[in-house]
Structures are given as structure tokens and as C-alpha cells.
């Protein structure tokens, strides 16, 4: 599933083209131009509204109903009942929230800084830098099926790599990585971090390439060592990228789905690995769906996400608005 945005919002372009154009009036937009622009914006906008926003709004509406997903006439308005049930009488809900928070903290504290660290290490004239980059980014390129399979054959309690090594070192020891509800979330987080690190690394590397090398060299000439250069000069200069990394991390953590789904056997939430996205799937996909209930869960996730994205979008675009 896709992820959030990597690029930095640029500072306002000093030669904003349109203002320039209107000032100097080289040629007014003709009817052909206007038609072209209307099509250019109209078609994608229509697609977006019809395929994305319309269903999203419909889901919000459905979250106030009870529906098995079959006949439209069976949709019954239940008001806030679904939300009430979810908050008070849905055993996996609070564990899922907790797991999402753990996911967020873990991702923000380990793979994200590590990815930034790697990007900084690789952003220099270094032999094999591309080899390193590829190796670390590779988990992102692999399909989810491969990722699921890889970790399955690592964590397998009988034939897996980890328990095999463990068993060779201390016979009789047996860790149920994916089965133990106290452990499996962490096992999955390792798999997730394995992918996330490369993603962050690439995004940050892109950001770092945008930092004028002169800036770094100036700092180096001033006698700052690598860490100081990074912390005092480069990191602050990359504020826009930092914001994006933060948003990506938050979004990926809130929406975390794929890796857990695959490592959970593709059957929905498992004890110890409940996540909001999986609870939604539990209720929406499958033989006996509870569309209203699932939609209400989705709206909860949506609200949390929007709170996270909202701050970002407002911060990002307000600058341009100046």
C-alpha cells in the first residue's frame, strides 16, 4: 500500500510564474488554453472525487448505520451506536490502539533515526555507496509476499532460522516468535523496521542531496566534526524534509497493515497483533461483514490520521500562501 509524501515543500518560488505572467502580460490565456487547463484539472479532479472522496464520505455516512453489506434496504440508522460499542464493548479495540501507539513510538525511535543516520553516512563521496543503498533499500522493493515469506521462514518455530540457531546454541530452547502474544508484535516490528529503514534512508538521502554541498563544506572548514556538522548545520537546514519524514513515519504507523496482515497468515487480526487497520478489515472483508461497524472503526482511524496529516498540510501549505 502506498505511503506518504517524500518531497520537501519548497520555499516560495521567487519568480512565481503566474504572477510574473500577469504582470508582464505577454499574452492572455486564449479560449483554447482555458479549455486545455479545464480538462487538465477537471479529469483528475473528477477521478479523485468519484473514486476516492465519494467512497470516503459514503463510509463516513455508513458508520452511523448497521448493515451487512448486501441489500441497500437493509441499512439501518443507528446513530452513534457503533462508536459507543467500539469504545466500550469491543475487546480488541483498545489493544489495537495500544499497538498502534507502540508501533509509532518504535518506528519513530529506531528505524527512522537509523535511516537518517545511514543517509547521512551515504551522502558523501564513497565507493560502493550505491551498493549499500541498494542493499538497504531492497526490502522496500520486494513484494509483500516475499517479505511475508522471508520472515515466516526466519521465525518458524520448528524450521526457522532464528530458532534453528537458538537450538544449536542452547538445545531445547524454543521461542514462539509469531505465536506468543507478548512477543509477536515485536517480531513483526523488526520486519517492519527492516523495510522502513531503507525507505527513510532514501527519502532523506534525496533531501540531503538537495543541501548545497557548499554548506556542508563550510561547516567542515570551520572545524566542526561530522556529528556537529550534521546536527548544527545539515539537520536544521533540512527542516522541510524532517517534517515529511515525520509525517511518513506517523502515517505508516497509523495505517500499518501489510506486514502484520501477511505475517498473521492473511486472516485478520491475531492476538497480540491487533491493529486498527486489521480490525477494519475483520469487519468489512469476509463472509459476514459488519459494514457500519467497520466503517466506524475506519472513521476513527481516519480522524486520527487527519489530525496528523492536517497539521502537516496546514503547516506546509500555509507557507506557500504567504
Amino acid at each position: 500500500m502506498p505511503s506518504a509524501s517524500p518531497t520537501a515543500p519548497p520555499a516560495p518560488a521567487p519568480q512565481a510564474p503566474a504572477t510574473g505572467a500577469s504582470r508582464r502580460r505577454p499574452r492572455r490565456l486564449g479560449p483554447g488554453d482555458r479549455l486545455f487547463l479545464a480538462v487538465v484539472i477537471g479529469v483528475p479532479l473528477l477521478a479523485l472525487l468519484v473514486f476516492v472522496w465519494l467512497p470516503a464520505l459514503a463510509s463516513m455516512g455508513l458508520s452511523f448505520t448497521s448493515w451487512d453489506g448486501i441489500y441497500l434496504s437493509d441499512i439501518h440508522w443507528v446513530g452513534l451506536d457503533n462508536y459507543h460499542q467500539i469504545l466500550t464493548n469491543y475487546p480488541p479495540f483498545w489493544p489495537a490502539v495500544r499497538h498502534n501507539v507502540i508501533w509509532l513510538l518504535f518506528t519513530a525511535l529506531l528505524p527512522t533515526p537509523f535511516g537518517i543516520f545511514l543517509a547521512y553516512q551515504l551522502d558523501r563521496k564513497l565507493r560502493f555507496t550505491r551498493v549499500y543503498q541498494t542493499a538497504i533499500f531492497l526490502p522496500m522493493v520486494l513484494s509483500l509476499a516475499v517479505v511475508g515469506l522471508i520472515w515466516e521462514i526466519i521465525y518458524n518455530p520448528d524450521t526457522g532460522l532464528l530458532d534453528g540457531i537458538l537450538n544449536a546454541a542452547a538445545p531445547g530452547h524454543h521461542v514462539d516468535w509469531l505465536g506468543d502474544p507478548d512477543l509477536n508484535l515485536w517480531a513483526v516490528l523488526v520486519a517492519s523496521a527492516w523495510r522502513h529503514t531503507g525507505y527513510i534512508m532514501i527519502l532523506y538521502l534525496a533531501g540531503l542531496k538537495g543541501v548545497d554541498p557548499a554548506l556542508k563544506e563550510a561547516a567542515a572548514l570551520d572545524g566542526a566534526n561530522g556529528r556537529q556538522t550534521f546536527l548544527k548545520v545539515v539537520f536544521p537546514a533540512l527542516k522541510p524534509v524532517n517534517v515529511i519524514i515525520l509525517v511518513v513515519t506517523v502515517m505508516e504507523s497509523l495505517r500499518a497493515f501489510d506486514v502484520v496482515y501477511v505475517l498473521g497468515g492473511g486472516v485478520g487480526s491475531k492476538p497480540g497483533m491487533e491493529l486498527l487497520s486489521l480490525l477494519i478489515t475483520d469487519n468489512i472483508i469476509g463472509e459476514s461483514s459488519h459494514i457500519g461497524y467497520g466503517s466506524a472503526l475506519a472513521v476513527v482511524l481516519l480522524l486520527v490520521s487527519l489530525a496528523a496529516i492536517g497539521t502537516f498540510l496546514v503547516q506546509n501549505f500555509r507557507k506557500e500562501d504567504r
Partner: peptide, 13 residues
């Protein structure tokens, strides 16, 4: 032991 992470197929094996 360790049934929570094992496939039934490995159990059968």
C-alpha cells in the same frame, strides 16, 4: 510446544 507460531502442516509433519 510453540504451537502458536507453527503451521498445522508442520504439526502434521
Amino acid at each position: 510446544q510453540g504451537a502458536g507460531g507453527r503451521s498445522w502442516q508442520d504439526a502434521a509433519q
